[in-house]
Nucleic acid binder design. Sequence first.
DNA 1: TTGCAAAGTTAGATATATCTAACATATTTT
DNA 2: AAAATATGTTAGATATATCTAACTTTGCAA
Lengths: 228, 228
Amino acid sequence: MPTSIKENYLKALHYLSLQSSEISVTELGNAMDVSKPTVNVMVKNLASKGWVVHEKYQPIRLTPEGKRAAAKVIRKHRLAELFLYQVMGFGWEEVHAIAEELEHVKSEYFFQRMDEMLGQPLFDPHGSPIPDASGHMPSTHYILLSQVAVPCKVVVKAIADSSPEFLIYLNEKNIQLGTELTLIHKEAFDGNLTVSFNHCDKAILSQSVASRLLVDSVSETTKSKKHR
Amino acid sequence: MPTSIKENYLKALHYLSLQSSEISVTELGNAMDVSKPTVNVMVKNLASKGWVVHEKYQPIRLTPEGKRAAAKVIRKHRLAELFLYQVMGFGWEEVHAIAEELEHVKSEYFFQRMDEMLGQPLFDPHGSPIPDASGHMPSTHYILLSQVAVPCKVVVKAIADSSPEFLIYLNEKNIQLGTELTLIHKEAFDGNLTVSFNHCDKAILSQSVASRLLVDSVSETTKSKKHR
DNA sequence: TTGCAAAGTTAGATATATCTAACATATTTT
DNA sequence: AAAATATGTTAGATATATCTAACTTTGCAA
């Protein structure tokens, strides 16, 4: 069983692996907000547990067991977030911070019961998929709003940044998961996107915002309606 | 803010204080399952935080701030137990172990919300009173079943031992909080108590069991019906 | 009232997770 | 290709929480 600190390293390694499976000591140090020597020591430790592979001056890489261990922590985090949102009535901008603590609770029963109460949910309140109990991370195929070509119609599927600041911004703009955005114009200079939604709202979303929203394109033939 | 280990020492000190406000290093070591030197170091640490007073070779004593800090942890524990029982449907024999973890969650919102959802409850599933948010521990006046003179009628008000083993025993015997016990006979030799309850059940409760049940005597005039 | 056992303390070691300072290796730039 | 910069490692220190071994104090009993 990893300590909660090691669990946090595993999570960080998972998120960094999304960019590239090869992770540098510096990157991990920045992500965990610790010095490079600290990373060095910890990586040796994680390697001895079989969660990463690492050779001198080489990049760090999660092993399959490491990925599974990370997914189990992320499962707990996301189940907790959805529980806090759905059962306890917290706002989607509040759940992340509390889930950061709950994810380290060891009791499997606690999360099993959450899972049951929520009906084996597939997504957390920010649209991120919930890994299964055996540590399998579901894959998603969403794209960043910033990478969509205009004009186009898309649906907001997930949020790539769960910070309260960003979520409160979305609350104010009235953008939620499932909101259908019609992309009207993209400013070449700064990437600002003019969008309309909810049949009347209109907004200009900065590059910064667009790169934090994961969307799915709405095919004219309205075919795929799989999840949420 | 105490670390979760210090929170456990505070809890142990609270429970030992119920017997006598003067606590020995040995007692605390036994309660925490650590060596005496470990207690020594930790007590210095707790004293530097103002939670205990301790002079060389003297007994340890919780300060008012220490009592308040302990009560806050116990509040979290008991709120968590009731939440697990009432909202999440765990058995009263399961909640203690999970609450041992949840009590260390720092987020005040989490417990505030539990408190609201449960309607500012006064007692946990084992009948123990829930301290208020400012760290005030309510007093109770219940007596141990083992100390009641027979014949008599009493109501089970609280359980002095939340171990799954004991609670499962009570489940099997069909004894719950609120169960009215008619004490028929007390064996002088071993303290075995013959009791009847639920209008038909009868049981012989050992000294060991009777000393783990907190009861209130049922006055013939059926006056006080304050809590649960 | 002395002597010994129980209780408490000190000293020094270990494990985890962190740091800074100094050094080593890679990579990039000119 | 050499110099400069970035990246990574080693060594040694710190804080927390723990241990064992050895020593001290207290208090009871002979």
